[in-house]
Measured scan of single mutants.
Amino acid sequence: EDYYQILGVPRNASQKEIKKAYYQLAKKYHPDTNKDDPKAKEKFSQLAEAYEVLSDEVKRKQYDA
């Protein structure tokens, strides 16, 4: 799945936009606030993985290549 789609940001998003999108979605899908939703944990880990790659310039360049 596309990391940009997961975070809901365009491919040319700035680091600030990526961070903002991640924090909004992380708050929304955090397992502690969605105890009754088994998919929230999965969504949250996808968000974390996408953010880890896109927030790191080197990893992001490799991902975009």
Results as ranks from 00 to 15, higher is better:
1 E>L: 13
2 D>E: 06
3 Y>A: 03
3 Y>N: 02
3 Y>C: 04
3 Y>K: 03
4 Y>W: 02
4 Y>Q: 00
5 Q>L: 11
7 L>R: 00
7 L>K: 00
7 L>N: 01
8 G>W: 04
10 P>I: 08
10 P>T: 12
11 R>M: 09
11 R>S: 10
12 N>A: 11
12 N>L: 10
12 N>D: 11
13 A>L: 01
13 A>G: 04
13 A>H: 01
14 S>R: 06
15 Q>W: 05
15 Q>P: 10
16 K>I: 15
16 K>M: 12
17 E>I: 09
17 E>K: 07
18 I>S: 00
18 I>T: 01
18 I>Y: 01
19 K>I: 14
19 K>F: 11
19 K>H: 14
20 K>N: 10
20 K>Y: 13
21 A>H: 09
21 A>T: 05
22 Y>E: 00
24 Q>D: 14
25 L>W: 05
26 A>P: 01
27 K>M: 14
27 K>H: 13
28 K>V: 10
28 K>P: 05
28 K>N: 08
28 K>R: 10
29 Y>V: 05
31 P>S: 14
31 P>L: 06
32 D>Q: 08
32 D>C: 08
33 T>D: 14
33 T>E: 14
34 N>V: 11
34 N>R: 02
35 K>Y: 10
36 D>V: 04
36 D>R: 04
37 D>L: 03
38 P>A: 07
38 P>Y: 08
39 K>G: 11
40 A>N: 09
40 A>P: 04
41 K>I: 12
41 K>E: 14
41 K>D: 10
42 E>Y: 07
42 E>C: 08
42 E>A: 07
43 K>C: 07
43 K>P: 03
43 K>E: 06
44 F>E: 04
44 F>N: 03
45 S>K: 14
46 Q>I: 09
48 A>I: 13
48 A>R: 15
48 A>H: 12
48 A>P: 02
48 A>K: 12
49 E>W: 07
49 E>S: 09
50 A>W: 01
51 Y>E: 01
51 Y>V: 03
53 V>H: 05
54 L>F: 01
54 L>V: 03
55 S>D: 05
55 S>H: 08
56 D>C: 04
56 D>W: 01
58 V>W: 12
59 K>R: 12
59 K>P: 02
60 R>C: 02
61 K>D: 06
61 K>N: 13
61 K>S: 11
61 K>T: 08
62 Q>P: 02
63 Y>S: 02
63 Y>Q: 02
63 Y>A: 02
63 Y>G: 02
64 D>W: 02
